[in-house]
Design a protein around this nucleic acid. Structure first.
Lengths: 144, 144
DNA sequence: CGGTATCCCACTCGATACTG
DNA sequence: CAGTATCGAGTGGGATACCG
């Protein structure tokens, strides 16, 4: 009910024979923790101090209650978020990133840097690729 | 036919108002280039020199022809892979990671390090979480 | 050898409504 | 306020078969 197929994508890093495959699995492993549309945004808002449910809901544009809850639960399950309930009326719940998550966030910044540096390169490569692909099959491109 | 929804997940980094949101988008952007089950493995094998189609197919355990082709095409489209065709008989195609992809791979290594360092923490957090979740709803856990 | 073409299922995510 | 429950669409990816 709470989770399903979240364990072991294909094989764990330990089960891989070659060291290269182990590294690939490790990367996959790390990425699966923060995959999904909303994990990064939530991590981002909770690494700078506790955030309440509604704070997150308002701070992350476009997220639905359902997805916020689901993503929070998954992050909590992985030990990346701590959930603190204050038994007040009305109820109040704080979410805070754990030290492990903060470490992760730091390494994600280098990814962000890469993306910012090469975003234009990639964009150009794409349009170029799409253009030449369209040129070789003009029928398909005209169909849309 | 070749691609579909690969452009702009929700909003581009430029469109984000707060600098935090822009970084979140950048990370998402970078991850979307290598998301999917096989991209990392392919990148891994092609950063150390050219690799042929069948080499990749054999080197990456569990991948199907279809997914190999699809992932190769996407990476090529983003300018992360160069595809070289030798008009011989039988045909021969080489795939090589571009310098941009090699830079990406370096930053992915820090992610791999994070995963390796904290894999056990996360595993422990999970079993703990699942155990206490099962304890609070014994009916659900007995149902499976 | 190096791909396409089809079919199909599982899972993710969004929308909406209800609740302690 | 901080969630759950339910439904339904879209997509990622596997299996299989065929092709230049």
């Amino acid at each position: 009910m709470s989770q399903r197929n979240t364990d072991v994508p294909v094989q764990t890093a330990e089960e891989c024979e070659t060291p290269e495959a182990r590294q690939a699995c490790s990367v996959l492993d790390a990425m699966s923790r923060v995959s999904g549309k909303w994990s990064i945004g939530i991590l981002l808002m909770t690494t700078k101090g506790p955030a309440r449910f509604t704070e997150l809901e308002r701070g992350i544009k476009g997220i639905s209650r359902r997805m916020l809850t689901l993503t929070l639960r998954n992050l909590e399950r992985d030990g990346l978020l701590t959930r603190t309930v204050y038994p007040t009326v009305p109820p109040r719940v704080d979410y805070t990133a754990t030290p492990v998550a903060c470490k992760l966030y730091e390494t994600l910044l280098s990814l962000a840097n890469w993306a910012q540096q090469h975003h234009d390169d990639i964009q150009r490569a794409r349009t170029l690729y799409d253009l030449s692909a369209a040129a070789t099959m003009p029928v398909e491109s005209a169909r849309r």
